[in-house]
Structures are given as structure tokens and as C-alpha cells.
Design a binder for these strands. Sequence first.
DNA 1: GCCTCATACTTGGTGTCACGATGTATAAGA
DNA 2: TCTTATACATCGTGACACCAAGTATGAGGC
Lengths: 115, 115
Amino acid sequence: MTERDAWSEQLRRGGLELAILLTLAPGRRYGLEIIRHLEAFTDLIVTEGTVYPILSRLTRDGLLAAEWVAGEGPHPRKYYRLTAAGRTRLAEMTDHWNTFTAKIARLIRAAEPRP
Amino acid sequence: MTERDAWSEQLRRGGLELAILLTLAPGRRYGLEIIRHLEAFTDLIVTEGTVYPILSRLTRDGLLAAEWVAGEGPHPRKYYRLTAAGRTRLAEMTDHWNTFTAKIARLIRAAEPRP
DNA sequence: GCCTCATACTTGGTGTCACGATGTATAAGA
DNA sequence: TCTTATACATCGTGACACCAAGTATGAGGC
């Protein structure tokens, strides 16, 4: 299904992981907070079923550290923050992102009708 | 395996289809030619096993048209060109790409240490 | 005429991953 | 007590790039 926007889903696949790490760069945040921030700040709609698996994977890989905090809200929250490894990795990924988008941008310019 | 660069592969997934369509925007090209052009023009390394399935899918979806041409090289070549639908779709995708990268760029700026 | 070698396209199997749906738990408010 | 909002977790699914191996064609050497 969803033949139309199958591609945009593909596109997100690469970007979402980076987007989540970037969201955590300024400081710790919990799951739903990340979702709301992404939507408010970039119009990127992501659901829980998408974000939680990514957060789990990033934590398992040592890029994030998780910490339960109770008493702040109606429900205990699991806060995530970047580890040192996560920060290093984020820098690498940002770098990679920039060079990759530059390549695509170059193709886009080459594809435009001659000016 | 390849835990390290698993992400960069993910990133390519979204961009490759766009990159291939962009490569075909100026005119028709055949499979290996697309691979060589991407490598020469953008340093993007893609193998046959990656490109041909994408070309098949895009053709099946009506975005590309294929045509066998013999006598040009040592082997008959299958040339691909954008259809009208493909051109429309390419414009949509380019648009989508631009807005998406703008969102990530915004996150990157927000993640930088305050200047 | 045979044998490499480069060209060119094809295909099957594999692993990864976002996404939707569903479920569980907690506590405030009516 | 019953609803509602918050918050996190997970299973199943389908899509898809990638690797590897395979097929076909003709040119050049000897």
C-alpha cells in the first residue's frame, strides 16, 4: 500500500535517526517530548512506534544513555541523553549528511534546464 | 554486519532513487553509464545489483521507459529515459527533498553550541 | 578457431528497518 | 469509580538496497 509516498518513507529512514540525535544535542529529553519537538520544530510527524525502537537501538549501541525519572509528570519518564560516543557519532553523521546532500544538490543543479 | 556504516547505507536508500532520476533528467542513459556517471560526478559508489532493480521498479511504475539499442558498443544496451510521469514525479521528489533537508538543516543549526 | 577479457544486464537470497496497531501502566479529574 | 491523558513497549509486516552469482555478447591475441 501507500504506493505514492513510499519514497518519502524511504527518505525519512536515513534522516530520522539523525534528527533524533540532533534533538537530543541541546540536552536530555524523553520519548514523547522528542516526538512533539520534531513536530513543532520541523513539521516532521513521527509516531511512538517509530521513535521508541530507534531510541532503543541507539541506547543499545551506546550512543544514548537512558534514565528513568519519576515525579515530574503524571507518569514516570525515560529521559535520553547523548553519551560521549553519541556526540562523536552525531558529528560524523552530520558531516556525512552534509556531504551527501551536497552531492544530491549537485545532481539537482545539473538536472535543471540550462539557464 | 557493517555496524559502522549501516547508517550511511540507510541514508543512501532515500537518495539513490532520486539520484538516478536526476541522472536521467538531461537525457537517456543506460545502466552502467548511470553507475559511472554517479561515481564520476558525485563519488557515489553504487553497484549493478543496486541500480538495476531500481531501474526495473521505476520502469514498472511508469516513471522510466526502456529501449534496447544494439550496435553502439560491444554489447546491446538498455537505454532508460524519463517519461512524462517520471518528470512530474521527479519534480515532486526534488521538492520533497528540498523541504526535508531544510528541516534537518534547521535541526543542525539548533543543535550547534550557541555562537 | 579458441580463449581470455571487458562490457552489460539479470536474478535470488538476506538482513534491516520504519510504521501501524495494540497493549500496559499511572495518576489526575469528574 | 470511570474516563481521559500521559508515557513507554512490542509484534507483525512489507519494502528495499545490497551481495553474489549467473547469462550473454563481441573484441583481440595467438
